[in-house]
């Protein structure tokens, strides 16, 4: 269980977040959406511990080693091979090197990277690098994964495949997820709950939407669920109000783009 209570954050005296609260239950997939620059990533950095809030608390029932983090940049060490990068996440937590390498190979194979273990990140495509980063996170058997727009840099087809892999694995392993994204469709199709962060400065959580689409989910087909369109319209309308824009319903892709 992850619970963020009344977190406030400022950068050099400039307020960013004010009293932001959210919760991620065990095995729950939660997304955080909001206008650009509202402080979504900053809130995630507070949860990770990379930023110190001026007020509020972050309660987490998971140990540090049980939390996996996936950023937009895969941030793989360029001088280590795919195998070494994945194994590093394990050896840093005390696993024997031989076991770590075996685990790394297992997870790379599971994510379709068998045969690419000895490649350096520069010799991998964007999608492959993202899978290596994902293997690095999953190999640690996390109970909670924090993601900051991890799929944003991928093209549509690769993105769909990686997202499908992630959903299948987190459902299978019952991993809790907090996903920061600007993509409303992605948020609704993947999540059990979506939080809307208001326009900054002094951004706070203004809405929580429960997504009743059953699991296991196919991220593409879940968009055809009857509740999806209604939720999407509501989320878009609320987000438009936050950024002070038009309420007219744009095409879905335009909406995601504009968000």
């Amino acid at each position: 269980m992850l619970r963020v209570r009344d977190v406030s954050l400022s950068y050099g005296g400039e307020p960013v977040l004010e009293g932001a609260s959210l919760a991620v239950g065990d095995g729950q997939f939660v997304s955080l959406v909001g206008p650009s620059g509202s402080g979504k990533s900053s809130l995630l950095r507070v949860i990770i511990g990379l930023q110190t809030p001026i007020a509020g608390i972050v309660e987490c029932s998971y140990r540090r080693s049980e939390i996996g983090i996936l950023f937009q940049d895969d941030a793989l060490l360029p001088w280590k091979t795919a195998r070494e990068n994945v194994a590093l996440g394990l050896t840093l937590n005390g696993m024997d090197r031989r076991d770590a390498v075996a685990q790394a190979d297992h997870w790379l194979g599971r994510l379709g990277l068998a045969g690419f273990e000895d490649r350096y990140p520069r010799r991998l495509s964007g999608g492959q690098r993202k899978r290596v980063a994902l293997a690095q996170v999953l190999a640690r058997k996390p109970k909670l994964i924090l993601m900051d727009e991890p799929f944003a840099s991928l093209d549509a087809i690769v993105r769909a495949r990686v997202v499908a892999d992630v959903v299948a694995l987190v459902e299978q392993q019952k991993i809790s997820v907090l996903l920061v994204t600007h993509d409303l469709e992605e948020a609704l199709s993947l999540s059990d709950a979506v939080y809307l962060l208001s326009q900054g400065p002094r951004a706070r959580i203004t809405q929580e939407y429960n997504v009743p689409i059953p699991r296991p989910r196919d991220p593409v087909r879940s968009r055809l669920h009857p509740s999806f369109a209604t939720l999407y319209e509501k989320l878009w309308s609320d987000l438009s109000r936050e950024v002070g824009g038009e309420h007219a319903q744009p095409a879905r892709d335009d909406a995601a783009e504009a968000a």
């Binding site: 990770i48 990379l50 540090r64 080693s65 983090i69 950023f71 940049d73 941030a75 793989l76 060490l77 001088w79 280590k80 590093l88 996440g89 840093l92 937590n93 690095q136 640690r140």
Partner: peptide
């Protein structure tokens, strides 16, 4: 690269891990 430093930190690495896995290879390069 701050992203690499944050990566090692979030993977649970301390100061020595940062020196060994980020700073020294960067220095060598």
């Amino acid at each position: 690269d701050r992203r690499l430093v944050e990566r090692i930190t979030t993977l649970g690495g301390g100061r020595w891990a940062l020196i060994r896995h980020v700073y020294l290879p960067s220095v060598a390069a």
